[in-house]
C-alpha cells in the first residue's frame, strides 16, 4: 500500500482533527493552569509553618505522584460516579473528568517545581521587602512571585508540553481528543500511516508554538533595560 498524500492532506485539514486538536489544547491548557494554582498553594503549605497544611501537602504530593495518570483517569471517570450519584448526571462529561484527573495529578508535580523555585529566591529579597514595611502578602506578590516565575518558566513549559501529550490518555474515557480521532479514522479505513502522520504533524506544530511562546516569555523575564536591549541588537 502506498502513502496516499491526498488522504493525508484531507485528514490534516479535516474538521474532526481540528476539533480534536482544539480539545487537546484546551484540556492541556486548563489542566496546566489549574495545576499551577494548586501547586502554588501546596508549595506554600509545604514550606510554611502550619503542621496540618504541611502534612496535607506532603501526603497530596506523595499520593498523586504515585498514581499512574491512566489509573486516575479511569477512577475519576468510572469509579467516582459509582460512589457519588451526582456525578452520574449529564453535566459530568469526559472533558470535565479528564480536567479533574490531570489537574489534580499535575498539581503534585507543579508543587515540587514551585517549591524549589521559591527556595531558590535569595532570602535577602524577602528580608529587604519586609524591611521596607511590606506585609507577607505584598512580599510574596511584589518580590517573590516575579522572581520565582523566571526560575519556574523552563520546567513549567516542560510540564505543559508533557500535558499536551498526556491528554491523549483521555482517549480511554472516550474523550474525542486528537489521538482518539486518529484512532477512529484508522478503524474506519485501516490507513494507519496517513492518520498517524497527520496526528504527528499536529503534535509537532503545537509543541513548536509552545516552545516559541516559552522563549518569548523567558526574554520578557530577562530583566535588562530597554536601553541595553536595543544596543545589543
Amino acid at each position: 500500500m502506498d502513502f496516499e498524500s491526498k488522504l493525508f492532506f484531507e485528514v490534516l485539514v479535516s474538521e474532526s482533527f481540528l476539533k480534536g486538536a482544539a480539545i487537546s489544547i484546551a484540556l492541556a491548557t486548563l489542566s496546566q493552569l489549574l495545576a499551577i494554582f494548586f501547586g502554588f498553594f501546596l508549595a506554600i503549605f509545604r514550606l510554611g509553618k502550619n503542621p496540618i497544611l504541611k502534612s496535607f501537602a506532603g501526603v497530596y504530593i506523595w499520593l498523586f505522584r504515585a498514581i499512574p495518570a491512566l489509573l486516575l483517569l479511569l477512577i475519576v471517570w468510572n469509579a467516582l460516579p459509582q460512589l457519588i450519584p451526582a456525578m452520574r448526571q449529564g453535566w459530568y462529561s469526559p472533558f470535565l473528568a479528564a480536567l479533574l484527573a490531570l489537574s489534580i495529578l499535575e498539581g503534585a508535580y507543579m508543587a515540587e517545581i514551585l517549591r524549589s523555585s521559591i527556595m531558590s529566591v535569595d532570602d535577602g529579597q524577602a528580608l529587604a521587602g519586609r524591611a521596607l514595611g511590606m506585609t507577607p502578602t505584598q512580599v510574596m506578590r511584589k518580590v517573590v512571585i516575579p522572581q520565582l516565575t523566571r526560575i519556574a518558566i523552563p520546567p513549567t513549559a516542560n510540564e505543559y508540553i508533557g500535558m499536551i501529550k498526556y491528554t491523549s490518555l483521555a482517549s480511554v474515557i472516550s474523550l474525542q481528543e486528537l489521538l482518539t480521532r486518529a484512532g477512529n479514522g484508522v478503524s474506519a479505513t485501516f490507513r494507519y500511516v496517513e492518520y498517524y502522520a497527520a496526528a504527528l504533524i499536529y503534535y509537532l506544530v503545537i509543541v513548536s508554538v509552545l516552545m516559541f511562546m516559552q522563549s518569548r516569555l523567558e526574554k520578557r523575564y530577562s530583566w535588562i533595560s530597554t536601553v541595553k536591549k536595543s544596543k545589543r541588537v
Binding site: 528580608l127 529587604a128 524591611a131 507577607p136
Partner: peptide, 26 residues
C-alpha cells in the same frame, strides 16, 4: 503579627551588606 510589624517598620530604613535590590525591577 507580621502585619503589625510591617506598619511599625515604616519609620526605620535599612541598608544591607549585599544591597538586596529587587533584580526584576529597574
Amino acid at each position: 503579627s507580621e502585619k503589625v510589624l510591617a506598619l511599625r517598620r515604616r519609620g526605620i530604613g535599612m541598608v544591607f551588606q549585599k544591597f538586596n535590590l529587587f533584580p526584576h525591577l529597574s
